[in-house]
Design a protein around this nucleic acid. Structure first.
Lengths: 351, 351
DNA sequence: CTGAAAGCGCTAACAT
DNA sequence: ATGTTAGCGCTTTCAG
């Protein structure tokens, strides 16, 4: 069964295709009686205008692309939820481009990003949002940066929580330093002085910023910074377990009383290891996370953490992208303030 | 800056657009020297063929749509991950259509499904996958069913874990009854006889099936079925807490020794309530979940549950859809066997 | 191996 | 208020 087109409708309604188009788009006045005739035909055949043809001519598709590393990491669905809301309100549909970082090495991931970038350009999306992957790198390969810069010449690209220096892209970010400062201040206010930092990757800018926040807070409070108490190695629960075990091994005298984790997942791992080692959280050791993924509220004990306002991040990114697409003015950098969420995994230092 | 087209390339290479198209698609032999000329021009201008124009003529877009209720529920990202893998391998990009069930009433959700259905048809996707929402209803409004049936006349629609009777759609499902049976058998094998079921919604077919599995297993083992021990009220952690509290209230004599939860989220809520009530899990009460979301392995205690093979579900759905799109034969119903995952939240009944 | 020309389904001047 | 017509950028006969 051949799909019905504007021509079919036009013929049967005894009007021209232009008129059909007009009632479809309300782009010019149409006599009530003709409009009615056309509308009823549209309903009769359940006519659905071909968006490809329309987009081909209008040079806009109402589609945007979002490239992210791993939908399975609970951080990203939160961002997506915000993005979706805002995008839908503005009339966009979006391609989810998951580069599947969890099952492969990073090179393959960057390659996949490139691949998706090309596909999205070909499909004529109105704009692209990127987060994770190369965007998080402290030192990103210039070729990878250039590639994104080239795409950005054709259509707007906005970055969430990252940067590609030199590509001069629009960005919406969470204020990582502020977040790290909040976390540390919370621990210090509770009386902790022997604090460790675990998690993350040192080649990633978010980790660097969080570590810097840790170091600065220690120094600001006149506390010594011991590099042996800053451990990197990933963002997963497993990483958290491993790093915490390492920390505990070098901590025979039980001096460390609080741990600032690079994210909630590592914090959860850290708690598990601590508990298995016979420590009580938070009585014996306070643990604070970072991100505020939904699960943070459901762990046992419930996790004290820094909310990265994921949903808002997504919403803002969609908003900025929309403004870019419609040539409205936006500032090049939108910064969102994180928030301390106090739950059960931190407690005052026992004397 | 105007985007470059096949015409621009053709002109500069002194060939016709047909030839450019040929080298682009390898659709006919082209003399090596001409091909080279064209290719170098393509690289020079970073020419990217307009997929809209191509799709308009080829009547295929390489796009599929996936409609789901809430990306924030950890069950769905798992499905998506499988879907993405398979779809990418087969050359598809996909629209994520989240109907945002978490922020609204169900009517608005169904409406949003309808809206997305229309958009996807207009955008000429090659196929659609639906899960959650109306698809899960035991008694779905005939109009809502008909709507999907109509869409299915134009392009293939496959359902994951659901059904719309009468629309005769292709489906890939997890064998819920088998899963429920596994869960119950595990508890019974551990010696439990006083078992309750909590969670889910009685208007949803998955809940019905799980409850049926519960009832059958009880009867098969000659255990009495007490309706007061079958409680519905949602799939969230909150629901789990509430329902568990209710169960405990009517359980003053501490007779119930095991609880089968409708999903992992409710199981987590149930554990929290049980622990707060002074019960030890699993020593005093065994709790089993359903789904095997990633977090199930990270809760404390780690959750014994039934794996719904989410990733495989997504992968199979993409595979079935692809076969449908390419007119290959597939069976109308693909059923996947769940798997019992024993962790720490269940233990033998104490004498 | 290559070119000319006819569309895919729609919108947007430009007429009337 | 409505019709005519020329594309949007590409693929695909059909010739040569």
């Amino acid at each position: 069964m051949k799909p019905v087109t504007v021509y079919d409708i036009a013929r049967e309604a005894n009007v021209s295709v232009a008129t059909v188009s007009r009632v479809l788009n309300n782009t010019a006045p149409v006599k009530a009686s003709t409009r009615e005739r056309v509308v009823s035909l549209i309903n009769k055949y359940q006519f659905s205008p071909n968006a490809l043809a329309r987009s081909l001519i209008k040079k806009e598709t109402g589609m945007i692309g979002i490239i992210l590393p791993d939908i399975t990491n609970p951080f990203f669905p939160e961002v997506l939820a915000g993005l979706e809301q805002e995008a839908r309100n503005k009339g966009y549909t979006f391609f989810l481009c998951d580069t599947g970082s969890s099952n492969q090495d990073v090179q393959a991931q960057y390659q996949r990003e490139s691949q998706y970038l090309n596909i999205l350009v070909e499909k004529q999306v109105d704009g692209i949002i990127m987060l994770g992957g190369r965007v998080d790198l402290v030192k990103c390969d210039p070729d990878l940066i250039k590639e994104v810069a080239e795409v950005n010449k054709r259509l707007p690209v906005v970055l969430i929580n990252g940067n590609l220096p030199g590509a001069s892209l629009y960005r919406v970010v969470i204020d990582e330093s502020a977040g790290a400062a909040m976390a540390m201040q919370h621990l210090i206010d509770l009386g902790h002085r022997e604090i460790a930092f675990i998690g993350g990757y040192k080649q990633m800018s978010n980790t660097i910023q969080r570590v810097q926040g840790y170091v600065k807070a220690m120094e600001r409070n006149g506390l010594p910074v011991d590099k042996k108490r800053i451990l990197q190695g990933g963002f997963s629960v497993e990483a958290g377990k491993k790093l915490m075990a390492e920390l505990l091994k070098n901590n025979e005298h039980g001096r460390i009383t609080a741990v600032f984790c690079a994210n909630d997942l590592t914090a959860i791992g850290a708690i598990k290891t601590a508990v298995k080692a016979g420590l009580r959280v938070p009585e014996d050791i306070s643990i604070i996370g970072f991100d505020d993924i939904p699960f943070a509220a459901n762990s046992m004990p419930e996790l004290t953490t820094i909310s990265l306002k994921c949903t808002e991040l997504g919403r803002m990114a969609a908003d900025v992208l929309h403004k870019l697409i419609t040539n409205k003015k936006v500032s090049r950098l939108t910064s969102i303030q994180p928030e301390l969420i106090v739950r059960e995994s931190t407690a005052p230092l026992k004397e």
